[in-house]
């Protein structure tokens, strides 16, 4: 049981990892929406100040993904709950809910696959001119590529991003509405 528990916690952290990566991505992808600086502004007419986007507008898709992870996989509930006094058994039961729901969201909207296809632990070649965004070097980093090293983590890459548009009619800061059941 303890083994599976750690597996689930690891999975939950992986979700968190992807999530933060996505929020980062969305910040980058939100950038083109900002009005580009005027190419050659006339000196006497200063460029109009870009209408400032609120943080939630800038990060709408990140918040939206978080709301989907909560809706399908109770992600926010899980991470924000105090688990100090909770038994591993209870934690594992909750982790199944989170695992199943969050996995569904990731599979549906992001085709996620390893950056490197090799097995972890295998020796891999890092060629000259490698993409440092895709491969991070650790350990005794010295000299110039090509390198040879042990693959510690194969990395993750979202191949397709098929997220739906964040809702415009709703406040994206509301990750999950309160539910009130009428008698």
């Amino acid at each position: 049981m303890a083994d599976s528990f750690y597996l689930y916690v690891a999975a939950a952290f992986a979700v968190g990892f992807v999530l933060s990566a996505l929020i980062f991505r969305s910040r980058k992808s939100a950038a083109p929406e900002l009005p580009a600086p005027a190419p050659a502004p006339a000196p006497e007419k200063p460029a109009l100040a870009a209408p400032a986007l609120t943080p939630e507008q800038q990060h709408a898709s990140g918040l939206f993904l978080l709301s989907m992870l909560q809706r399908e996989g109770r992600f926010v509930d899980f991470v924000l709950e105090d688990v100090a006094g909770v038994s591993d058994d209870q934690l594992a039961g909750a982790a199944r809910v989170v695992h199943e729901g969050c996995r569904k969201v990731l599979k549906q909207y992001l085709s996620i696959e390893p950056v490197l296809p090799q097995e972890e632990g295998a020796t891999v070649d890092v060629p000259a001119g490698f993409d440092a965004g895709r491969i991070r070097l650790t350990g005794n980093v010295a000299g110039a590529p090509p390198f040879k090293g042990a693959l510690k983590h194969h990395g993750w890459a979202a191949k397709d991003v098929k997220l739906p548009q964040p809702p415009t009619a709703l406040d994206v800061k509301i990750l999950a509405p309160a539910e009130v059941e009428l008698p």
Partner: peptide, 15 residues
């Protein structure tokens, strides 16, 4: 597993 309706997953999840 059936998640609890409330925000606490640990207490109310049925297994």
């Amino acid at each position: 597993t059936v998640a609890s309706r409330g925000s606490s997953l640990m207490g109310g999840t049925l297994k």
